[in-house]
């Protein structure tokens, strides 16, 4: 990182200095291998668990010194890359409800627009960091807790040899009370399109604010709130994430100008290959174990964020260009 030790670095081709990459939008030199490794780690998660992995990329990039806006904007394109191959795979076996997906995407694109406005408002108020942190703690903590509880219950039931109580697939009463009803054949639903539209909108806002794909919120919401049939949930969620992160990248490119193509490229190299390896692992592991591991990771990130809010931060002062 320091220019003073440069001559040594140039001589040894594989030393850390030789891997320095300058990020033209973040205005910062970083170690390219670290970024590729970070991408691979989150790609691995996305391949294994079907989530985007953005919830891990954005905080780690910020921790590495990348400005928060650039981190969120560039992480979105990484999630696009990681979800492409998954979405193709699900499409091939008919695991996407395009009708439902279309409504979710429409909501998601609206959501990114609202998210962009919110982003600007919160930035002007100086509270964007706090809001992002609180969102992380609440959402990750809540969902991680639910997942952990569910997978532990399932594992215990298996060990005792008891058959799992079959979940009654039924959408939430609130969903039933909404006006207008459409038939979503592949999802096996006859519900108001407003429910998935609002759900898509919420994930769009979160994607814009947090740089996450929203998969870890979308999947449980599709299962437990909309009551979609399980065989199209993951595929449809990937379909929605794919288009919403694309919209997010565009929105950032047009409003914040914070998409760093070099940073995104490095992350992509790691994450697209990580995702493929993760998918191989996922085929061999038990789904309950996978969900428990994901729950632990999600809870760990939430805990770290919560501590960050409570402990005295390293930097009391922050500089924002006027």
């Amino acid at each position: 990182m320091h220019a003073g030790s440069g001559s040594f670095g140039r001589r040894a081709a594989l030393s850390p200095q030789a891997m320095d990459v300058y990020l033209p939008i973040a205005n910062l030199a970083v170690n390219g291998l670290v970024i590729v490794g970070l991408g691979a780690l989150t790609g691995l998660l996305s391949g294994m668990f079907g989530v985007g992995g953005g919830f891990l990329t954005t905080p780690l990039l910020i921790f590495y010194g990348v400005p928060p806006t650039v981190a969120a904007a560039s992480a979105a394109s990484q999630v696009t890359g990681a979800s492409v191959s998954g979405a193709f795979a699900h499409a091939r076996r008919g695991g996407i409800d395009y009708h439902m997906g279309g409504v979710l995407v429409a909501g998601g694109v609206l959501g990114t627009g609202i998210g962009a406005l919110l982003f600007r408002l919160l930035q002007a108020l100086g509270q964007i960091d706090t809001v992002i942190n609180i969102l992380y703690v609440v959402l990750l903590g809540g969902i991680g807790g639910l997942m952990a509880h569910e997978s532990i219950t399932a594992l215990r039931a298996q060990r005792l040899g008891r058959p799992q109580p079959a979940r009654r697939r039924r959408h939430h009463p609130l969903v039933a009370s909404l006006p207008l009803r459409w038939r979503f054949y592949r999802s096996g639903l006859y519900i108001s399109p407003l429910a998935p539209l609002l759900l898509g909108m919420a994930t769009g806002i979160l994607t814009m604010l947090m740089g996450i794909g929203g998969g870890f919120i979308l999947v449980p919401a599709m299962l437990y709130i909309l009551g979609m049939s399980t065989n199209v949930v993951v595929g449809t969620s990937l379909f929605q994430i794919l288009f919403v992160t694309m919209a997010t990248t565009m929105m950032h490119a047009l409003t914040t100008h914070a998409v760093d193509i070099v940073l995104a490229g490095l992350l992509l190299v790691g994450s697209v290959s990580g995702a493929q390896i993760g998918a191989l692992f996922a085929q061999k592991a038990k789904p309950e174990h996978l969900r428990l591991i994901l729950a632990v990771i999600v809870l760990a990130v939430a805990l770290r964020m919560a501590l960050g809010l409570g402990y005295r931060p390293d930097e009391i002062f922050t500089v924002v260009p006027l």
């Binding site: 394109s77 890359g81 492409v84 193709f88 565009m250 047009l254 193509i261 992509l268 190299v269 493929q276």
Partner: peptide
């Protein structure tokens, strides 16, 4: 911004797709 954003989207979709094909 428009072209730049489109380029970023094409790169990310393309890389994801290529990786899927290679693997």
């Amino acid at each position: 911004g428009l072209l730049y954003g489109l380029f970023a989207v094409v790169v990310s979709v393309g890389m994801g797709w290529i990786a899927g094909r290679l693997f």
